[in-house]
């Protein structure tokens, strides 16, 4: 606590060189993270970059004397909210990489122009404001930052606090209502499942994914002996979403490239026509 108070005392006077250094280094990283959030093609990467930016912001909160918020930022935002994002990304499909090609004519240029103008104007507004004097939080944090906040939240802002509570509950209920789905068909009984198992088309177990393949990921269909993908080997959910990755062609071309490299290494520059045709048949 005493260390905090000391830090607060320095805060009131201005900023130390250490803080300046920290600002320039971490600020650069934060901006880079934000830019990556926007420009990464995969949602997972965006989420991770955003999490990094948020952690840096948490450090800045701490540097600004908002100790409670700094911790909350890490715990709630980075810990909970960003994880929620990652869950949803997983639900929606990690593989779906956005193409960054713009479909609306002129949208990107307009957006960049507006963003540039907006940023310049906002900076101009900040620069225009007379913000020379910083009071510092030494006085306000004298009894501890958390205590100070608590005193405010439970006295001056108590109604707002209660209302945000109500808002949270409403949001939770709303999310449940939105995502909840009524079961449209009766659940199968154990008897029906066993009958289906025994009398259905597939007496043996369903083929596993990745069979005869160079992948063992769940979304890659196993290959049948003739090299075509066996869709049955992919789990039903992915099949319905159409998220099966067909790697047969990819695998074949990979194989070709590998063999080519091997031949190069072995300096077998002139491959006979007969061999080549054999290889082509084998690859089929």
């Amino acid at each position: 606590m005493s260390a905090q108070l000391a830090a607060a005392a320095t805060l009131s006077a201005g900023t130390s060189t250490g803080e300046a250094f920290q600002f320039w280094v971490l600020g650069t990283v934060a901006v880079a993270g934000a830019l990556c959030t926007v420009f990464m093609r995969r949602a997972v990467h965006s989420a991770l970059c955003l999490a990094g930016t948020m952690i840096i912001l948490a450090v800045f909160y701490l540097a600004n004397g908002a100790y409670f918020l700094g911790v909350v930022q890490i715990v709630v935002y980075t810990g909970a909210i960003m994880m929620l994002f990652l869950f949803v990304v997983m639900l929606v499909g990690v593989t779906a990489a956005d193409s960054l090609k713009e479909t609306i004519k002129g949208q990107r240029w307009l957006a960049l122009l507006c963003g540039l103008g907006f940023g310049i104007l906002l900076a101009a507004g900040v620069g225009n404001a007379s913000l020379k004097e910083f009071t510092g939080l030494g006085q306000a944090n004298a009894n501890g930052n958390v205590e100070g906040l608590a005193a405010l939240i439970f006295t001056k802002y108590v109604f707002a606090f209660e209302i945000t509570g109500a808002l949270l509950i409403t949001a939770a209920v709303g999310a449940m209502v939105l995502t909840h789905r009524e079961r449209t068909e009766r659940a199968k009984t154990q008897r029906e499942m066993s009958e289906e198992r025994v009398r259905g088309k597939h007496l043996p177990p369903l083929p596993a994914p990745g069979v005869y393949a160079r992948h063992n990921a769940v979304d890659v269909a196993g290959l049948l002996p003739d090299g075509t993908p066996a869709e049955l080997s992919v789990m039903q959910t992915l099949r319905q979403r159409g998220q099966i990755r067909d790697v047969s062609a990819e695998a074949i071309s990979d194989l070709k490239a590998l063999e080519q490299r091997a031949e190069d290494r072995l300096e077998r520059t002139n491959s006979g026509p007969g061999k080549g045709s054999n290889r082509g048949e084998a690859s089929k």
């Binding site: 609306i104 949208q107 307009l110 957006a111 507006c114 963003g115 103008g117 907006f118 104007l121 906002l122 101009a124 507004g125 225009n128």
Partner: peptide, 19 residues
């Protein structure tokens, strides 16, 4: 997104006007 651009542009103009 197109509408959002208009809104964003409008906000920029508002800030400009305020300044």
């Amino acid at each position: 997104r197109s509408y959002a651009v208009s809104m964003f542009g409008g906000v920029a103009i508002l800030i400009a006007a305020t300044l």
